[in-house]
Amino acid sequence: MTGKLSRALAVVSLLASTSASAQEEAQALESSARDERRGLELTVGVGFQVGAGYVYREGAGLDRQVRDLKLSDAANGGIAFLLEAGYRVNSRWYVGAFGQYSHVLTKTNPYTCPEGYDCSTSQIRFGPHVQYHFAPDASFDPFVGLGVGMVLLNNKVSGPITQPAPGTVEIDSQSRGPEFVNLTLGGKWRLSDSLSFGPYLTGTYARYTTRSGTSTVNIPAVNLTQETPLEQVGDGPYGLLMLGVRGTWNL
């Protein structure tokens, strides 16, 4: 009887050990599958941006005075709309491209947007970037992103003039330049296997290096319409800071 009991216990022990090993192997395979998860990702976001630095240096404003134009002179910040698309190489690494459109909140000032003038400004940023995710399988996944890009600034101003005679002026300008670096810190709460949502903070360093556009003066009294190219200005180094929220879909 003792021998039969011993053999039965041995069989039970063997079965338990085999079951545990199988479970551990299944968990290891599942974890490995998560680590090797790949696929396309699409992200949309919205945030608020502020900036410091210069739009240009040594340029003439509407008052014809030559000065350096700071971002703080011309804008009260902006509302930024973000779009990212890329490929998740594995659970930790992502490679893709970003695009951002910002509606700039223009500020009334005597240099670029005097009282009574109609002023509108928008900015476009785009370029490649990469992300590293620290806890891809956790409920909250912090990440850091690094990228470079180009920036386009479009500005339109129109309003009345009194010199050399009563009339109107319309200025249409485009400034552009490289974004040398952008750094993003953020995190994602996992809402489902394919959807996550969370905050982000992006800082940039860039420079406007080229300005083009026209100034059109219209004087009805003498039936005159004159269009002239804008004068060149000095480079405008600046930095931006964007704070917002973003949602990501794993396709």
Rank of each mutant, 00 (worst) to 15 (best):
G247T: 06
Y87N: 08
L153V: 03
L40V: 13
T184F: 00
V144W: 02
V217Q: 11
A221V: 05
A33Y: 08
V181W: 01
Y205C: 06
V89L: 12
S91L: 00
G167H: 02
R190K: 13
G244D: 07
D141P: 02
T43W: 01
L9S: 14
L201Y: 06
N155G: 10
Y111S: 13
D68M: 04
G198E: 07
P142Y: 03
S6T: 14
D68L: 05
G47F: 03
G145N: 08
G78Y: 01
V222P: 05
W249A: 09
Q49W: 06
Q131Y: 07
M242D: 14
S194A: 12
G59K: 01
L69I: 09
K188W: 05
V50I: 13
E84M: 10
E115Y: 08
A165H: 00
Y132H: 09
E36V: 04
F140Y: 14
A22H: 13
D235W: 02
L191A: 11
D137Y: 03
L241N: 01
P164Y: 03
T210S: 12
G51P: 04
E115D: 15
G167D: 02
R92C: 07
Y56S: 12
V44L: 15
Q23T: 13
G239E: 01
G45P: 05
N109S: 10
N90Q: 01
Y117R: 11
I219T: 02
P166I: 01
A165F: 03
I124N: 09
G96H: 04
V222C: 06
V89F: 10
Q65N: 13
Y205Q: 09
E84Y: 03
K107S: 11
G51E: 07
I124Q: 08
Q100K: 14
R7F: 09
T214N: 15
A75Q: 12
G244V: 01
T2P: 06
L29Y: 09
V12T: 10
V169Q: 13
V144F: 08
G39N: 11
Y117A: 14
D172R: 09
T108I: 09
V144R: 08
T204H: 01
G247Y: 02
G116K: 10
A52L: 11
G149E: 00
Q163V: 10
Q123V: 08
I171M: 08
L62D: 10
P178F: 02
P220I: 01
R88V: 01
S102Y: 00
N90G: 00
V46W: 12
S32Y: 03
G239M: 05
S215P: 04
S102A: 10
A74C: 09
L185C: 06
R34W: 00
A52Q: 13
A33N: 13
P128W: 07
C119K: 03
G145L: 02
D68R: 02
G203C: 05
L185P: 04
L185A: 13
V50K: 10
A26D: 15
V151W: 02
R125Q: 12
Y54W: 12
S17G: 13
Y200K: 01
